[in-house]
Amino acid sequence: MLNSRTFRRQFINRFVLIISTLAALLGIVMLVWILGDVVLRGFGVINWNFFTELPVPPGEEGGGLANAIIGTLVMTIVAALMAVPVGVMAGTYLSEFGKHNLFGRLVRSLSDILVSAPSIVVGVFVYLIMVKTMGHFSGWAGSVSLAILMLPVVIRTTEEMLRLVPGEMRESALALGAPYWNMMMNIVFRAAKNGMATGIMLAVARVAGETAPLLFTAMNSPYWMQSMNEPMANLTVTLFNYAMSPYNDWQELAWGAAFLITVSVLCVNIITRLILSSGRSKP
């Protein structure tokens, strides 16, 4: 009797172990499969023209996505310029003054929730407050919606990185008579600088791949960027339009765009991981 019971327990155990190993294997296989397809179908499309030329109508030879690449870069950078100062200040509040009080907890939870909030709703919101009131789609509106998506991530990263700064460092500065703001500026921010920079890079990479919030804000454009006050070309919406189009050459360009976006985002992720792990082992 005991033997059959032991056997049953062993059997169930083996079964679960095998299943979960297969699940992990499945995860790896999917990553390799997706990356493999993106690289195989996208890499061949990338050439000099891809980075230097405007898009051409389907059927014509050549053409690139230069305007979309520039548009995505500009909009993402402008979004970071808007979100980072606000996010760093708010994150500072959470880490320094709002650790345990009700308001701090509220802002912290709200940021956590907004990190995962549907980005398309942010697009609708920015459409209503900017596009509708100004009467036209614009790069500014695109940047604002990206900034709104970036903000909660920057807040939480800043808070976490500031908390890693040891209390003794703060106390030493305060004991020397430094005012709190001076201690923050000269000691804590400097100590947390690298961590905050990598966290912010991750937030930037995250929104650089966003599509949904740009559909109704920056929209898209086949031309070079003249100003941010008009519809602005960007990689992700272009990818969407091209991939959904019935033309083969446009679909190929879409794979090229997918390759470029995926490789950039993954590179930023891997580099920041390396920096963070090398920084953590030192002190």
């Binding site: 995860g27 997706i34 397809d37 679909q251 985002v265 993954l266």
Partner: peptide, 30 residues
């Protein structure tokens, strides 16, 4: 998992989360 395998597999899974959703969508379609 054996210890030496935890870091690379864990990183691979986390990288899957970093791929933009539009790439998933396009890959799904084609």
């Amino acid at each position: 998992s054996p210890y030496w395998l935890r870091k690379p597999v864990g990183t691979a899974i986390e990288l899957l989360a970093a791929i933009p959703s539009i790439v998933y969508g396009m890959w799904g379609l084609f």
